[in-house]
């Protein structure tokens, strides 16, 4: 076990463990991309990474790109296709896992990255979906990574950019949303999973160095936080050495 790591590094290690060998993964940038690097080197050497620009990689890029179109992410790619190819794979059910982030969420894992407030007169205009709505609708499993702050945990999100389990059990089936929905929510304070009958987020593990009181305060009462629960496994020295090789200055994982 390592003793000295940042919350960002802990989240990357937790995200990497969501990737299984041989899976086709819609990766995304930042922390999920680092998680893909870790998984490829440690326990998922046969995984493929897909990017919505159309890039498909069977190995991590030699340097951590800022965007999926940075030249190092294209050179040596397994394939460079149009977006239509990777979105077709997603829609036909060939993508096992997708990662996305969110500005705010609710107990059913619905995510908003579009408008804070009324979309007609928003107080904040966020950038929008990008490919997030597609990944949330269509990937067989969805893992959400976001900061854990009280203002981000809402009774209802103001706008559903990327659906989780909608209004609860049976909603995805009724609505025709064919992907499997969120399987994990990894935050700066803990890891949540979604109850198979109620579809509500429930705590899987609390991060080390986090108190139950703090977790409750930042969750704002929309989720029940038990008095005791498992603690998220700390990043191993192997995981940390890979993360730090790809992120030597802590640019991505230093201050989460």
């Amino acid at each position: 076990m390592a003793t000295d790591y940042t919350p960002g590094e802990l989240m990357v290690a937790a995200a990497a463990r969501e990737i299984y060998d041989g899976e086709v993964v819609f990766v995304g940038m930042r922390l999920p991309l680092l998680a893909f690097c870790v998984a490829k080197e440690l326990h998922a050497p046969a995984a493929y990474g897909l990017f919505e620009s159309g890039v498909i990689r069977d190995r991590a890029a030699p340097v951590m790109p800022y965007t999926m179109c940075d030249p190092p992410n294209i050179a040596g790619a397994a394939a460079c296709t149009p977006m239509a190819t990777v979105m077709s794979l997603l829609q036909r059910g060939d993508v096992d896992l997708g990662f996305i982030g969110g500005a705010e969420t609710d107990r059913y894992g619905n995510l908003n990255t579009s408008y804070i407030g009324n979309p007609e007169h928003p107080t904040v205009k966020l950038p929008g979906s990008g490919g997030a709505a597609d990944i949330a609708c269509l990937a067989r499993r969805l893992v959400v990574i976001m900061p854990h702050e009280r203002r981000r945990f809402r009774e209802r999100v103001d706008y559903v950019t990327s659906p989780g389990f909608g209004e609860g059990a049976g909603w995805r089936e009724r609505t025709g949303v064919v992907g499997g929905g969120p399987s994990a929510l990894i935050t700066t304070l803990g890891v949540f999973e979604f109850d198979s009958s109620t579809r509500k987020a429930v705590l899987r593990s609390i991060h080390p160095h986090t108190t139950v009181a703090h977790l409750r305060e930042e969750t704002g009462g929309i989720l029940e936080i038990p008095d005791q629960g498992p603690v998220t496994a700390e990043p191993t020295t192997d995981e940390l050495s890979i993360i730090r090789r790809y992120d030597p200055t802590g640019f991505w994982t230093g201050a989460q």
Partner: peptide, 26 residues
């Protein structure tokens, strides 16, 4: 979404008024 935007262009590219998809439901 990125996929619906691609499909909107693909519809125009094919000369049809729309294309169907399973994304964006909900």
């Amino acid at each position: 979404s990125n996929f619906t935007f691609s499909l909107a262009l693909q519809a125009a590219a094919q000369g049809v008024p729309y294309l169907p998809t399973r994304t964006a439901l909900g």
